[in-house]
Amino acid sequence: MINIGVLALQGAVREHAEALQAADVNVIAVKRPEQLDGLHGLVFPGGESTTMRRLIDKYGFFEPLKKFSEQGNPMFGTCAGAILMAKEIVGQEPHLGVMDMTVQRNAFGRQRESFEAPLKVQGIGEDVHGVFIRAPIIVSTGPSAEVISEYDGEIVAARQGNFLACSYHPELTDDHRMHQYFVEMIRKNRLAA
């Protein structure tokens, strides 16, 4: 059985858990660093990145999360989760800095500019429903990262080896293909190990 954690310090944890459970994996809500032991992959949910970062520091998650990523464990971040994973954030210090990309927070504007729109996502489909809430964009990606989706000329999803990030919220739709894609990444990673 594959064990996938969802970082449960704040945000839309339940929605991710439900989407993953649909892929028939064991889901753990991670509130303590020791819960990372035995996980095969980790999801950083949407929420407020500043809040999550403060709680990551407070509860000694920072080094264990870095180590978890360095061990080659797959990670998937949506919206605030993508911000936590990025190596660079426009106008502020980065958080975990595990994925080779630069993000810009609230890039589409405030809540009244939040929107839904159809998206093409490479490896997923041409009919993905993008839900963007005070969403960031990926301004640029490093040479090892691959852009897998753009909206209106802006990068909104990318993959770098075992890291997957998107600025929209697949967990707020009934379409679980993004989560299934992540579970496949974990399966392949385990076979390769």
Partner: peptide, 15 residues
């Protein structure tokens, strides 16, 4: 839309 309005509050959960 309902989804982006309600979704915004979903992101505040646990906070």
């Amino acid at each position: 839309t309902d989804r982006v309005k309600r979704g915004m509050a979903e992101m505040q959960k646990g906070g």
